[in-house]
Design a protein around this nucleic acid. Structure first.
Lengths: 196, 196
DNA sequence: CTGTTTTTTAGTACCTAGTCCTAATATCGG
DNA sequence: CCGATATTAGGACTAGGTACTAAAAAACAG
């Protein structure tokens, strides 16, 4: 009905990209050609069969699931910890952490790593960030490994100050002072919040 | 070789959960029973066949792809924006945003929403957070809707101050003052970093 | 130890969504 | 109209199953 082979193949490619779950049968109907034609088209465009496409999508999914699970409790990998004293974690900046337009890591990831470490270093059931003063001192590029070092500087009744400095190589990229609340039954104003 | 039907079925369930890509054939070998036994087991446990499992995983993926694309640039949904003046975004706190042990939202999500909004409100190619002073004034529970309001308070050459206040209902839960750099070619110290 | 019940195994026909291959038609450009 | 390209049809085969029947093996009961 429509157009040349070329046209059809372009539309085919787009259609499958948008909905990888479509069968050759369905495509044949949509473009009113035979299934065989669709198969020839897929061959020429080297588009794999339905099941392979689905599998590919599923595998991609499994990969990020593994990636997103450890994020559950701590962002970055803790490589050293002395409770109530200090801790070190590393975080590798991948493409999903950066702005697409300039490849610079988005601040909340640096914050999350630091905040998470501040929570982890506290030897208590519950630790929440009350306030924080932070500085992003250098941009961080994709592919960098950020090493965050947390030090507990003061500790009073229910309140602990944690200083975190993050480095890429020997460059300071982030500094933050976190005022943490520990294990109180969270109730009133300026007493609470997250950590990680 | 091993154990009762019950035992095998439990192990089967776990195995498939961990690796949904396993065929009956492979399972049969692993448990040294026949394929038919595996199929009976799947029936009794109502575990779908390989292809259905893969499809399910793939479909789940497609769903969050739609969800994670807008997240790409802004965390939370912007519901109002006046460039270089103010912006409002909402963010719904779901189970993946809270600490499992107490159901309180993890701070970096509040930070991310606020920081992201501060970036978005700036009418420039590039906006990076230089420093921030933040306060978590109330814990936020799972299921809450956080409304973040950003206001540009000062703007000088290349540097803009954005105040963000986040609320759950009428309660202030977060406040932050973000010092943003706009569109500079990022180079030196204390000049950079993310936003979103 | 025998009889019954449960569990496991084997085998067949059928399904989907393909691959790979051959061969017969259409359609188009010159 | 002729030859090249494109399309369609058909058959044989594949993986990874379902659904069903039937037989053999194992477990348990008395």
């Amino acid at each position: 009905m429509k157009q040349s082979k070329k046209e059809r193949q372009e539309r085919l490619q787009k259609t499958i990209q948008e909905n990888p779950f479509v069968t050759d049968e369905e495509l044949a109907q949509e473009f009113s050609v035979s299934v065989q034609t669709i198969r020839l088209d897929r061959m020429e465009l080297s588009i794999p069969e339905l099941r392979e496409r689905i599998k590919y999508v599923a595998e991609k999914n499994m990969q990020d699931e593994i990636r997103s699970l450890p994020i559950e409790e701590v962002i970055g990998d803790i490589i050293d910890i002395e409770l109530d004293k200090s801790a070190i974690s590393i975080f590798d900046v991948k493409k999903e952490h950066v702005f697409t337009r300039n490849g610079i890591a988005r601040g909340h990831h640096l914050f999350a790593q630091a905040n998470s470490l501040a929570v982890a270093v506290i030897n208590d059931e519950l630790a929440l960030t009350g306030k924080a003063e932070i500085r992003f001192t250098q941009p961080v590029k994709e592919g960098s490994r950020i090493v965050a070092k947390a030090k507990v500087t003061r500790s009073e009744k229910g309140r602990t100050i944690v200083d975190v400095a993050s480095f890429v190589g020997s460059d300071l990229v982030f500094r933050g002072e976190f005022s943490m609340f520990r294990a109180p039954s969270v109730e009133k104003e300026e007493k609470d919040e997250t950590g990680n």
